[in-house]
Each structure stands twice: as C-alpha cells, then as structure tokens.
C-alpha cells in the first residue's frame, strides 16, 4: 500500500449464503485509489460490482451476505474492523453511495426533500431549518426546483429520482463516493450535468470516486483508472489509456468489441460468446476460460495470478 493510497481494498471476498447454495460474488478483489482519483469499475451484470461497493460501505444484508475475508482501508483505517457506531459517522458523511436503482432507493412515504435533509442533519449537526435550506440548495443543484421539496417519490420521474439519490449522496461532500451506475436512468444532457457535478465536487473536495458503469463513454470521460471485473475477480487493472489502448485480457478486448464505435465502420458488433459462469460453481482456473478463444490446457488447471503487463497495468491471463 503506497503512501498516498486513500482507499485500499485487499483480498475482499464476499459470499451470499442461502439455504440451498452459496454464491461466490466477490473473490479476492484488490483495489487502490488515491485521493482525488476516479476509478471505473466495469463488468457484466452479476459480476459483483454492487457487492463490492456495499461491502466498502458495510451495508450488505447479512444474512445472506458474508464477508469471508479481506481488508478495506480508508485513510489507513480498516473499515471492516471499525465499530458500528464509528462506521455510522463514516456513512453518508465521508463515504457515500449512489444507489443503482432509483425506483426503489427512495422511501415512498417520506418527501424527497426530507430524505436529503436527513443526511445533512445527521452529520452536520445543524438545525432543522438550516438542513432544509441546504437540502433545497442540493435539489436546485441537481436541477430540481426547490418548491418540489415536499413532494413524494411517486410524483417524480425515474431520472428525477436518480438525481434526488445523487443529491442525497453528495449532500455532505464525501471523501469517497461510490457511484453505482449513477447515470443509467438519465438522458444524455442530464447525464453530462451530473458527471459535471461529480467533477466539480472532485475538484472542490478532492473526492475519490469509484464509478460503477456499463458505459465505456462514462469511463473514458471520468476515470483515471479502470478495473475490469469478471465473476467477482478483477481481470484487468490499469490507467485509463493503458486499458483502452492496450487491452490485455481477452475479456476486456471482448468488451470493447461489443460496443458500437463512432469511427470504425464495423458491420456487426461482436458479442462475447457464451454466458458468465454460474457463481455457485465457479471454474477452478481462469473463470473466463470457458468463453475464451485462446483457452488451452493450462488455463483451467489452477487459479491465475495477476501479472504485470506494463507500468501499473496488470492482467489476469496466462497468455
């Protein structure tokens, strides 16, 4: 762990244990993020991205979730060992999370303004009136008129709800922002505005940000680093340019081949063949090997380690 690392996740392993099966959602994930930097976490659905973000915030529902191992350091403090009381001071204040699904993330019987004011009151210890004023400002900031403070989530569109969720997450100016697909429900102009807001917060408070997304455009615009995650494992990690220009892992290459390009005239997109592996029975060796064009006898035999393919650029592939 280098000196200026702000968030450091070491060997995080999370399982979902139900009566009938055990889902290995996150398997030994390591991430490092310096102050003020932005990391993009990309990967297919079910890869374990949300689980990682929730594990860092320690809001996994347990049971069924169980953190089997690993350490999460924020500013040198191991979050997994922190007493719940101190963790409460962290959440919403120093660490905050933008939830993936705006339709279900807001309390249907509490007016949206109060859902923002609540987090301000909790951490900034201000009067109710002051919190209300700040919450109204937050609403304006995400482009929702302050008069709508007293309305309820069902009176809002999906995109507006997502903006309320963003406003609540940003209200206390967090040091670490975990944004779980923050722009999926937004149209392009609003999306640009939100990204711009995150940029500004970033410059203002040196917020370190983890952006979880499927949108390579968002990654290209926002991120300094990219981690590609597959079946609960990081398969490629590096600076934005390295990963985009010299993708090393066949899965990453496949991901890029599957997005439409503005510049090249590709007749057809190339989807990655096959399905992600069953998370209750993962392959022993490389988890991508069953779908990989370069698969040979070695790949399936034993776990593949991360190997350096360039300065600060690592990849989990034997090739």
């Amino acid at each position: 762990m280098s000196q200026d690392t702000f968030l450091s996740v070491r060997g995080l392993t999370v399982e979902y244990v139900t009566k009938y099966e055990t889902v290995q959602a996150v398997n030994g994930v390591c991430l490092d993020l310096s102050k003020g930097q932005t990391l993009g976490l990309v990967g297919e659905t079910g890869a374990g991205k949300t689980t990682i973000a929730r594990a860092v915030t320690r809001i996994l529902q347990s049971p069924p979730a169980a953190v089997r191992g690993g350490e999460i350091f924020l500013d040198g403090v191991d979050l997994l060992k922190l007493p719940e009381r101190e963790m409460c001071h962290m959440r919403g204040n120093r660490i905050s999370m933008i939830f993936q699904d705006p339709m279900t993330a807001l309390n249907p019987v509490m007016c949206v303004g109060n859902q923002i004011a609540e987090v301000i009151r909790k951490h900034d210890h201000v009067s109710a009136a002051a919190a209300r004023q700040q919450a109204e400002m937050s609403l304006e900031l995400v482009g929702i008129p302050a008069q709508r403070y007293g309305e309820y989530p069902h009176q809002f569109s999906g995109g507006m709800k997502q903006r309320v969720v963003i406003a609540a997450a940003l209200a206390c100016g967090p040091d670490l922002l975990l944004a779980d697909e923050p722009t999926t429900a937004l149209d392009v102009t609003i999306q640009a505005q939100m990204l711009d807001m995150m940029h500004r917060l970033h410059d203002l408070k040196e917020t370190s940000t983890v952006i979880i997304t499927h949108d390579m455009g968002v990654v290209a615009e926002m991120c300094d680093y990219v981690a590609v995650i597959y079946a609960g494992e990081i398969v490629e990690y590096g600076a934005l340019e390295d990963v985009f220009d010299h993708a090393a892992h066949p899965y990453t290459v496949g991901l890029f081949a599957a997005i439409p390009s503005m510049w090249e005239d590709v007749a057809r997109l190339t989807p990655i063949p096959g399905q992600p592996p069953d998370p209750t029975a993962l392959p022993v060796g490389c988890k991508f090997s069953p779908r990989c064009a370069y698969m040979d006898g070695e790949c399936g035999a034993r776990p593949v380690e991360m190997k350096t393919v360039g300065p600060g650029h690592t990849c989990r592939c034997l090739r």
Binding site: I59, M90, M97, N107, E118, V165
Partner: peptide
Amino acid sequence: DFVVMARSKGLSEGEVIVRHALP
C-alpha cells in the same frame, strides 16, 4: 433498497427502523 439506502446515510439502526422501515 430504500432501507439499505437509509443505512448508507449513516443513520443508526433505530432511526432506520423508526423513520423508514416502520412507516
């Protein structure tokens, strides 16, 4: 999700239950 979100705001478990879950 909204109960989990309430937790992510740093509310104590009691506040989460009384303010968000129970209503």
